[in-house]
Amino acid sequence: MVGDDPTAAITCELMAEMLTDLMEGDLPAEIEAAALDHLASCRACETVLADTRAVQKLARDHGRIELDPDDRDRMLGAILAEVDGAPGPTRTTEAE
């Protein structure tokens, strides 16, 4: 994603392309340093990064559909019903 001398000119367009590489820690050290320099002086790119991190956090905190114990037991019961030699369904929930 980066040209011959990326540290010379990190543009906003380039920054947008590198955002996930930066967040994943996948950039070579000198390019990462240049990207961080760009972010320190570019309000727009800094906002994009902050908002992307906010989206990431939102997904982590609110993206998971929680199953309740009855859901789990019903599903495990259906699975065990397919298995020869399995006992009846048991509670799957760990200490509540």
Partner: peptide
Amino acid sequence: EELFVIHVDAVFN
């Protein structure tokens, strides 16, 4: 059964 308890939420999601 052990795998089910650990991974069922991720599999469902």
